[in-house]
Computed example of a mutant assay.
Amino acid sequence: AYDTEKAVAIAAVARACQLTHRVFHQLVADQVITKDDQSPVTVADYGAQAVVLHALAAAFPADPVVAEEAIEEGSASAAQLEAVRALVNGVLPTPLALADIKAAINRGAHDPSVDPQGRFWTLDPIDGTKGFLRGDQYAVCLCLIDRGVPQVAVMGGPNLPLSLASTAEAPIHQQAAAPRGALLIAVRGEGVEQRWLDVATGTVREGGVPVQMRATTAPSDAAFVEGVEHGHSDQATQNMVATRLGIRGHVQMDSQCKYAVLARGDADVYLRLPVKPGYREKIWDHAPGVLLVQEAGGIVTDMHGAPLDFTRGRTLVDQQGVIAASAHFHPLVMEVLRDAK
């Protein structure tokens, strides 16, 4: 039902991954980047968003977009904008003027509450900026939401190994080992597939491999996937849940790649528990991952067991936390959280 949307999304995300890969190797790798120097991230964010939103505008001009970035007066220097222009035109077949690139970036200001049952896309052009700067995990994340429900998701992990068994200790950009570059693709009702993404050229191998969550029920064989940045989730509660369930395994990873490794069976539980009472999650941080996990056989809710509602605004209004897990472990996690109240 969404064959055209799927094809356009795959091509757009692959090109955006090619651009972010170039930014890393041209502006980040082998250079000392201070914590305060966000300029490579700014260039990569704007460039990736321009590439994807330009593709969506060409194919689906009536579709609004909810995207993370926007260019406002003074938000980027002339040098940064020139770098964005050069990078975007380095991956597109037809060059764009800077004004057209800015216009593409600024197509992402939609508010879903204006038309809750309408059709729109969500985009996070670089999720996991600290992982990006380290040469570790980050993701380009695109999702089509129609009538309030995620229908198509494409998540590109330029540094994500096709199998976690190949992950070594050294920073990924210093490794020459197993294939890296994973594209996770889901269409509602059609399951999830993984394809190899050659980030150097932006090409995607035809013929994906179907993936699904593993059927592990023994806590001793199960694993949490958790963020590298501990400030993003309530670690004390997560540790309590792990202890109560007897789950000792854990995989640490930046970005929405956590949803990807969950969907393909590298882990079984992902908790995003609020650390601040009033914090609300951004919808672009979760919509693609929700569809990946659901189509792989898992369950995703907020911490009270309600499905995530992507129609009330650019954030998950009146919802706290995210619980993503296999069909076996999700109800067990919810039971522990209820008992802990």
Rank of each mutant, 00 (worst) to 15 (best):
P61N: 01
A62S: 14
V65M: 14
V65H: 04
E68N: 08
E68Q: 11
A70P: 07
A70F: 05
A70G: 09
I71H: 08
I71Y: 04
I71R: 10
E73V: 04
G74F: 10
G74Y: 03
S75M: 10
A78G: 07
A79S: 14
A79R: 05
Q80E: 15
Q80S: 10
Q80W: 06
E82K: 12
R85W: 05
R85I: 03
A86D: 15
A86T: 00
L87C: 02
L87N: 09
V91I: 06
L92P: 09
P95R: 04
P95C: 02
L96W: 00
I101K: 01
K102P: 06
K102R: 15
K102L: 14
A103E: 11
A103C: 05
A104V: 12
A104E: 03
N106W: 02
R107T: 03
G108Q: 01
G108F: 00
A109R: 13
A109E: 09
H110K: 12
P112C: 12
P112W: 03
P112I: 15
S113K: 14
S113N: 08
D115F: 02
D115A: 15
D115S: 13
P116D: 03
G118T: 12
G118I: 15
F120Q: 10
F120V: 11
W121A: 02
P125D: 04
I126P: 04
D127I: 04
D127M: 08
G128C: 10
G128K: 05
G131F: 06
G131Y: 11
L133T: 00
L133C: 01
G135R: 03
D136G: 12
D136Q: 14
Q137H: 06
Y138R: 11
A139L: 06
C141S: 13
C141D: 07
L142D: 01
I145W: 04
I145A: 10
I145E: 03
G148V: 09
G148A: 08
V149E: 07
P150N: 01
P150H: 11
P150A: 10
P150C: 12
A153D: 09
V154W: 05
V154K: 00
V154P: 01
M155F: 07
M155A: 04
G156L: 02
P158G: 07
P158E: 04
P161N: 09
P161R: 10
S163K: 09
L164E: 15
A165I: 01
S166C: 12
P171F: 09
H173A: 11
H173G: 02
Q174A: 12
Q175C: 11
A176V: 15
A176F: 05
A176Y: 06
A177H: 11
